[in-house]
């Protein structure tokens, strides 16, 4: 399973997005606001999930803001920093 596929599955399952399946999440759609409709509490939850599942920490707000734009940006952030 690719990082993007894992991310989608984790987001749907851990954030209880019952009305959408992982396959329905578009790679470049915004995660917050108009796109997937996530909110600030989800952002905190995703920070925890990234560390738990990928061993990747988001250390600063600026880094997080950029990474949290879409599945594409989040996957790229993880792949750059994931322990080998």
């Amino acid at each position: 399973m690719t990082v993007k596929e894992q991310l989608k599955k984790i987001i749907v399952e851990e954030l209880n997005l019952e009305e959408i399946s992982p396959e329905e999440i578009e790679d470049d759609a915004p995660l917050f606001g108009e796109g997937l409709g996530l909110d600030s509490l989800d952002a905190v939850e995703i920070v925890v999930l990234l560390e738990k599942h990928f061993g990747v920490e988001i250390k600063s707000l600026d880094e997080g803001r950029e990474a949290f734009r879409s599945i594409n940006t989040l996957a790229a952030y993880i792949e750059e920093r994931m322990p080998r």
């Binding site: 509490l41 905190v44 939850e45 925890v48 560390e51 738990k52």
Partner: peptide, 12 residues
């Protein structure tokens, strides 16, 4: 998982 990885939703 330690205090740093506790779910905020679980906490609330």
């Amino acid at each position: 998982d330690g205090d740093g990885l506790s779910s905020p939703t679980s906490f609330s």
